[in-house]
């Protein structure tokens, strides 16, 4: 029982059992969103802030009805922001929307084609938000020097991309992710690029504290099944990391003893 002890995932003083964080975009409807999030076991769930569609049926289902703030830790993102000012405004709107909840996912994008983070604007926004009392989990490139800078200014989690947002190309530079893990004293999560369960497991085997993903579940043929796969992959990858993998060898080594074989 205690043989499989793990410390809980802690970010900005909040503690969680699950190391899988999921998004709520791209699902076919609210019901599927709610079911996939539940199936994933995630406790931290991202969402976006957008203009209310005026004139629309005010009784239309609201995301926060299927992802209630009483049950989940909501993580507003700044997706769609291309400069620090818009990202800061979006975070302040989100804080008002969630009655003062101050944990945010900061992402400031560089261009439409790559959605690659603009780290100059990201650093600027992070400074403003931290001064304003936000706990900032930050989406960034896999550059360890930028990651170190973001930690130094007070970000509560560093979230390098595995590959481009929505690409499903997995972790393109595991060596950089490992460098960031080794140097950081705040949680490191791979955010973006995970396409399937094995890639989530790899992130955890590299020593990441968690994984944030959305499209890999929402765009799977069966999202609910993939949500469960991701949950198990993150758990398996975490256990494999804690267990410590065997050393690689260049020659074979039999698992079965030679002594006592009938042809001996």
């Amino acid at each position: 029982m205690t043989a499989h002890h793990d410390t809980p995932f802690t970010v900005a003083g909040r503690t969680f059992g699950s190391r899988l964080l999921v998004g709520t975009g791209k699902y076919k409807d609210m019901a599927e969103t709610g079911q996939a999030v539940a199936e994933s076991g995630a406790e931290i769930v991202t969402f976006a802030v957008r203009r209310t569609n005026l004139g629309q049926d005010a009784d239309a289902p609201n995301l926060l009805d299927v992802i209630p703030p009483s049950r989940y830790t909501l993580l507003p993102n700044t997706a769609g922001c291309y400069n620090a000012k818009d990202a800061v405004r979006t975070c302040r709107l989100a804080r008002e929307l969630l009655d003062g909840h101050n944990l945010v996912k900061l992402e400031v994008l560089g261009d439409d084609a790559t959605l690659y983070p603009n780290v100059v604007e990201t650093l600027s926004a992070a400074r403003t938000l931290i001064d304003d009392g936000f706990d900032v989990m930050v989406y960034t490139s896999d550059d360890p020097i930028v990651a170190r800078e973001l930690e130094a200014i007070g970000c509560c989690a560093i979230m390098p991309l595995g590959s481009l947002i929505g690409s499903g190309h997995g972790i393109q530079n595991p060596y950089n992710v490992r460098l960031i893990v080794e140097q950081s004293s705040v949680p490191v999560l791979v955010d973006a690029g995970i396409g399937t369960a094995s890639e989530a497991a790899i992130a955890m085997e590299l020593g990441c504290d968690g994984v944030l993903l959305n499209s890999a579940i929402a765009h799977a043929r069966e999202p609910l099944r993939m949500a469960r796969a991701m949950k198990r992959a993150v758990e398996a990858g975490r256990d494999a990391f804690l267990a410590g993998r065997m050393a690689r060898r260049d020659t074979a080594e039999a698992s079965t003893p030679f002594a006592g074989r009938i042809n001996g």
Binding site: G23, T24, G25, K26, Y27, T33, T46, F47, A48, V49, R50, R51, T52, L54, N62, L63, L64, L74, P76, N77, A79, L93, L97, I165, L212, L213, N214, S215
Partner: peptide, 10 residues
């Protein structure tokens, strides 16, 4: 004036 709400996002 901006009036915003929560929608799905990653």
């Amino acid at each position: 004036i901006e009036v915003v709400h929560a929608i799905g996002g990653g």
